[in-house]
Design a protein around this nucleic acid. Structure first.
Lengths: 227, 227
DNA sequence: GCGGGCTCTCAGCCGGCTCTCAGGTTCGGG
DNA sequence: CCCGAACCTGAGAGCCGGCTGAGAGCCCGC
């Protein structure tokens, strides 16, 4: 089993290199491209498992790229990145072919979650979607969290934060790391909001049961099985 | 296996030579640079495993340096050094690619710990993150200390002091060395505080179990396996 | 337009952490 | 044995980080 190959297409220099580093770090084999033509060329050469494709591009836009791919018989799944304002209607309908889209700005957690979801649907094996810690369980496919069999309702941010903690079970994560992964990449605030959400999670998860989220003063937080 | 190569970029003459000596002594192959342009040049020539990069530089600042590196396809991980006040928001987004940052003033221990953490994440082999002495164990990833399987809660300073002692197990370290490595480099006080913290550690570590930290009067302290 | 959930900010509180200091104790040399 | 130096320890002041509750703004569904 090799790491899934991604083709990352975005003309925005900064964002592209940031995402490139981040996705590589998340275990993907990332190949960058800066324009539509480059992308078409790269698809043939790289044969990626998935294309992460910005809609707004200097030459061919994202839709054109896909149109040409499909008319050439290529079925590689595509994850679109779009700006909030426009085009949302145009992107709809594309999800029919197993593709998906994400509006900017997003968080890295969101992006990775969508990518693995699309890959899974396309039959590319990724590690399972089940995360646990003691009697706490998260089924990412069903977007469902339980503790001791009981359902727990979480807001989107709470859910993403918990997933990030679960993925790093047994390791310490700093507030900066949490902000970088769980919050949108253009979020401007400080770490105060993380403390608030840790509080929310604790209230919901540890209402009945031992402590799972531990504070390491001056260092960060960690999720750990109680002994 | 060769010693990991570091590129150390800081325009502050004093600090740079101090860090250069200290890091060399910690087993790294250190190459200094004093400006952004120098750094870019040096990255190409030296091909370091990691760049330690001050954000505040006379010509290109640290962010510019990284931007240029990345746009040139270079993925060398970076550890940023920043002043406390500003820039903390600008540093955000950096923990994404496995990079990290450290606010001045820091301690040598902190610096070395971050460097090895980043290198480990980047796949460069360093000795593992597990330090032991008799039944005392420290797992640096989880930031966790146990003795005989029992958890021991340590404050940040206690933790850093213990790690320093563990890394020098079997050797004697003077109070001056401890101050230089464990306390921030701008710390003004005398060695009295070291005695206090040694006391704290002894109380927590040796509550149940034989003595591990030994005093060598007029020389320093040493951590040793009981015989 | 109205109501409810979600997100984020902020200020006050609390407790732990860091460091200082003084008095007591141990050690080694003379 | 005596004395000074080095070290240990307890008490406490001040500081700082994290926790929490309250509330404003926003979006969305009704």
């Amino acid at each position: 089993m090799h790491a899934p190959r991604l083709l990352l297409v975005d003309d925005e220099e900064n964002l592209r290199s940031m995402l490139e580093a981040a996705l590589a770090h998340s275990g993907f084999d990332v190949h960058p491209a800066a324009s539509g033509r480059e992308a078409l060329e790269a698809v043939r050469q790289v044969r990626p498992d998935l294309v992460v494709l910005d809609v707004m591009l200097p030459d061919l836009d994202g839709f054109d790229v896909v149109k040409r791919l499909r008319s050439g018989g290529d079925r590689t799944p595509v994850l679109f990145l779009t700006a909030r304002d426009a085009t949302e209607d145009r992107v709809r309908g594309l999800t029919l072919g197993g593709d998906d889209y994400l509006v900017k700005p997003f968080s890295l957690e969101e992006l990775v979650a969508r990518i693995t979801a699309v890959l899974r649907r396309a039959g590319v094996d990724t590690r399972g979607s089940r995360l646990t810690c003691a009697d706490l369980e998260m089924d990412d496919d069903a977007h469902r969290v339980t503790r001791g069999g009981e359902d727990i309702a979480l807001s989107p941010t709470e859910y993403n934060l918990l997933r990030f903690l679960l993925q790093n079970k047994g390791r310490v994560v700093s507030k900066a790391q949490i902000l970088d992964h769980v919050w949108n990449y253009d979020f401007g605030g400080d770490g105060g909001v993380v403390e608030t959400y840790i509080g929310y999670l604790r209230r919901k998860l540890e209402a009945a049961g031992p402590r799972l989220i531990h504070t390491l003063r001056g260092v960060g937080y960690t999720l750990r099985e109680p002994t």
